[in-house]
Computed example of a mutant assay.
Amino acid sequence: MGLMYTTVIGYAVILGISAYFTMHYLSKALNSSDAVTIDPKPEVK
């Protein structure tokens, strides 16, 4: 039973770390402020 808990917790930790690094590198590569510079938000609908 302990091995099952250790495996599930270990898998969740590895999955969380990989998701963190993926989001970290995507947020650096895809700068969200560029969208406003390239295509400004319209003032009137």
Rank of each mutant, 00 (worst) to 15 (best):
S27W: 02
K41T: 05
V44W: 08
S18T: 07
G16C: 03
G10I: 01
V8P: 00
S27E: 04
L15W: 00
V36H: 12
I38L: 05
K28H: 12
T22N: 14
D39V: 08
M1N: 04
G2C: 06
V36D: 08
V8Y: 04
G2V: 06
P40M: 11
S27Q: 05
D34S: 10
V13C: 01
P40Y: 10
S18G: 01
K41S: 13
T37Q: 11
M1H: 07
S32R: 07
I9K: 02
K28C: 07
H24N: 11
K41I: 03
L15N: 03
V36M: 09
N31Y: 14
V44K: 08
A12V: 00
S33D: 08
S33M: 08
G16A: 03
V44M: 09
V13E: 00
G16K: 01
D34W: 04
K45I: 02
M4V: 01
E43D: 15
I14Y: 04
L26M: 10
V36T: 06
I17K: 04
Y20K: 04
P40T: 03
E43C: 14
Y11G: 15
A29F: 12
P40Q: 05
L30D: 15
K45R: 15
D39N: 11
A29W: 10
F21E: 06
M23W: 10
N31F: 05
S27Y: 03
L15R: 04
T6H: 05
N31E: 15
H24Y: 11
S27G: 05
Y5P: 01
K45D: 10
A19R: 05
S33L: 12
Y11Q: 11
D34M: 08
G16D: 03
K45G: 08
M1C: 09
I9A: 01
Y25E: 08
T6V: 14
G16L: 00
A29N: 13
T6I: 14
V44F: 12
T7Q: 12
Y25H: 06
T22C: 09
L30F: 15
V44P: 00
T7P: 01
P42R: 15
I17D: 04
Y20S: 06
A35M: 10
L30C: 10
S27V: 14
T7Y: 09
A12L: 08
S18V: 03
S18P: 00
P42D: 13
E43K: 09
M23T: 14
G2N: 10
G16Y: 02
G2L: 05
A19W: 07
Y25V: 12
F21M: 07
V8L: 05
K41N: 15
A12R: 06
V36P: 02
P42S: 13
M4D: 15
I9W: 01
